[in-house]
């Protein structure tokens, strides 16, 4: 007998004593929890996102479309970045004012190559105000998962208010489970030493979020 048949058989025997339950899934679970916590205006939601991002040590900037290239150029220069990774669909204007050399996100590049790049600039799919989270879904302006992971400095541009939601339930509604998703809340951190949060382990140690609106 295969492991599969054995396990399924065991499950069925284990449940033999339970009364039949034909309630459909939709009725089995009460959903009387909140869709979002508290009522806020759009501006207040964006403000909460900024607060919660900063609370987990992301550096928050605000920008407008026309001043964005200069802002990104400045952030890269302050960091001393010589090379910056860009996903294929990132608007070219965003990095037009940067001195750093643009490195395209290509499938053929080895992880070692990515490790030599100083910074990466991406867009995002959605941002969650209540938790201070940005979610990347691999769209053309965000690129492969590894590019926002290996470089030590990540600049993420969030379009406000369009890409901002209040809560986790609202974020999941907007996301496509078929895409590879990465939820990011602040820079890499650990609680492994004495259960206290320390920033900076394997992922980017500096996360800068630009709220573009």
């Amino acid at each position: 007998m295969s492991g599969r048949e054995r396990i399924l058989g065991r499950v069925r025997r284990a449940l033999a004593d339970v009364a039949p339950d034909d309630r459909p899934y939709g009725e089995a679970v009460p959903r009387d929890y909140l869709r979002e916590h508290g009522r806020r205006t759009v501006e207040e939601t964006v403000e909460l996102l900024a607060e919660n991002l900063a609370d987990y040590r992301a550096v928050v900037h605000r920008g407008t479309e026309d001043r964005l290239p200069a802002l990104i150029g400045r952030l890269l220069a302050e960091r001393g970045s010589r090379e910056v990774l860009v996903p294929a669909g990132l608007p070219p204007a965003w990095t037009a004012a940067a001195d750093a050399v643009r490195v395209d996100d290509r499938a053929a590049d080895t992880p070692q190559r990515l490790d030599r790049v100083d910074s990466v600039v991406t867009g995002c799919a959605v941002a969650v105000a209540e938790t201070g989270t940005i979610v990347l879904d691999g769209s053309p302006d965000q690129g492969r998962r590894r590019i926002s992971l290996v470089p030590d400095h990540h600049i993420c541009v969030v379009r406000v208010p369009d890409q901002v939601v209040s809560s986790v339930p609202q974020a999941l509604e907007r996301l496509d489970p078929g895409r590879p998703l990465t939820w990011i809340s602040g820079p890499s951190a650990t609680s492994d030493i004495e259960l206290d949060r320390v920033e900076g382990v394997h992922g980017p140690r500096t996360l800068e979020v630009i709220l573009l609106g």
């Binding site: 987990y56 492969r144 990011i184």
Partner: peptide, 19 residues
């Protein structure tokens, strides 16, 4: 005890040229 942990990964099978 965080509002959200720093990283959550979600994947569905394999994705072409990513991962």
């Amino acid at each position: 005890a965080e509002r959200m942990n720093p990283y959550t990964s979600m994947w569905t099978g394999t994705t072409d040229e990513d991962g």
